[in-house]
Structure formats: structure tokens, C-alpha cells
Amino acid sequence: MSVLAPERAPVLDEPSAAPAVRTRKKDFAGLVLAAPFLVLLVSTVLVPVLYALYLSLFTERLQGLGFSGPENVFIWLGNYLSVITDKAFHAGLGNVALFAFIHIPSMLIGSLVLALLLDSGVVRLRQMWSLAVFVPYAVPVVIGGLIWAYLYSPTIGPIKNLLGIDPLSDSAVLPSIANIATWQWVGYNMIIFYTALQAVPKEIVEAARADGAGGFRTAWSIKIPVIRPTIFVAVVFTVIGSLQVFTEPMVLRGFTGTVTSTWSPSMYVYEAAFVAGDNGRAAAASVLLAVICAVLSAVVMRFSTRRSSR
């Protein structure tokens, strides 16, 4: 995963850039320093992931006459099968797909355009503009969701009157949820892109100008290609975030009946585990979601390396 801005590209990707200092063969002080994180990683990520895999292969069933209480029964991939064939899970996947389809382009294009404008040199008070757009990132997701929910609400908020449509109605609620996420993340990604743009060599930009390239041309053919690795990393993180969307629809559920309890796959997992109490099905759904995330981010990264090696 190369998350670095172009100019620093050679710094790492493999920990093998061994410093000359390493004289002692066995370096246990390093292990001592790494130990606290190692313990955390094992106990709060590794073990839970393995446990989820284990859980996903079992289901609770009443045995015999049911006097002995439910027992865990190994059912191979039965839980996966019941998730894959569950219409509610399909609907959740459809919702996040559509959510991503709206949220990802609008957010990334918005933040890229703003970053390029800030970088173009015609903008006064750059700091002020970037801070203004960044502020929503500092708002907790629950609270961002609540603010927009009130703004959407037909009795309190102004948006219904402004647009003439009810943002919480069946057909509009999905773009409304996407808007909350876009509002929260545009500024953050703008800062990331703007920071990466600082690494574009001034001489190249200057040479392009001397050759008569206009601002759009410079941005499109020089600046964007140079920061492409950064853009792809932003795409990966946004894809993963979109697939896992949970908080925004959960908050809107308190305001409208149009968001179902299994609206997104994450909500499906929550519902299966903590409302229905079906741990096996919840674990299977969460493993499936993780696999989809992994596959999609691999696809995006593959696409990015192929494009940039051309």
C-alpha cells in the first residue's frame, strides 16, 4: 500500500530499508517497544477476527426436547448460505452500492476541484477557505447526522421548503444520507489532495505554462497524474467507508420510517447479532462484508498500479 506523496515515494514499502546502525543481531529492545501494540493487535483485532470466522460456522439449536438449552451446532457454510440468499442482505448491498455511487464521485471530485483551486495561486486567504471546508470533519458523525436530520425534518428544517421535496421520503433518503457523508469528508480529502499537490515540482508546472498550457490543461495533464497515488488511496478508503456505512442511517432511523433496520450491511450485522440474537448469521454477514471490502480495495489498488505504470 503506497500511501506516500510522490516525492517521498522511495522512503518505504518494505521495512527492509535497513539502517546502518543495526549492529546487534538480536534486538530485543525493539521488541519491548513494539510489544504493547503487538498485544493490542492480537487481542483486539486478530483474536476477534478468528473468533468471528469460528462463530460463522456454528448455529444455536435446541437439542432433543430442548430441556438442556440451546447448543452450538457446526453447520459448515450454512450461515453464509442463509445470508447470501437473504433478500434483506441484498437490499442492504444495493443501498450501499447506490450510496457509494453518489457519495464517492461527488465527494472526491468536490475535494479535488477545491484542492486544485487552492493550489492554483489565484486564491487569497487560502488558510481561511480550507479551514472553513475542513470544519465538518471535526464534527462527530453522530452529531453531523443529527444536525442534517433536523435540517431534513419537515417540521423543523428548511430543506423541504427550499427544494420542494421531502429529503426523508422513500425516494430521497439515500441521496440525503450520501450528502451527510459528503459534507463530512470533502474538507478532509481536500486537505490531503492539497498537501500532495505541494509536492508537484514547480519547474514542471512552469515549463508547461511556458509551452502555453492553460490552467485546466496543467491541472489535468500534470498535477492530477502526479498525485494519482494519493487519489487512489483516498478512493480505497472511501470505498471501504461507504460499504460499512452505519452511523448516518442509524441516526436518520430516529427521524423517518423509510430507513429499515437492515438498511446497510453493517446494520444487518447489528440487527442479526443484537436484536435477533443470531450470532452465526451475524458473524457470517460480517465476514462476507470484510471479504467484499478486501476484494474491492485490491481491485482499486490493482487498477491504480496498472494505470500508473503505463
Binding site: K26, G30, A34, F37, V47, Q244, P265, S266
Partner: peptide, 26 residues
């Protein structure tokens, strides 16, 4: 250069991508 640091780093990068949803129930 403690032993296993490459493995730890690889696990760390994988850890970045693990969704909270997977971790919550276990």
C-alpha cells in the same frame, strides 16, 4: 531489527483494512 518485525508490519497493514463491523460481535 527485532525478529518478526516484517510480519508485525504486514499484520498492521492488514489491520488497517479490517472493518469494525467484523470486530464488534466477537
Amino acid at each position: 531489527s527485532f525478529p518478526g518485525r516484517r510480519l508485525l508490519f504486514a499484520l498492521t497493514l492488514t489491520g488497517v483494512l479490517v472493518p469494525t463491523t467484523v470486530l464488534a460481535l466477537p
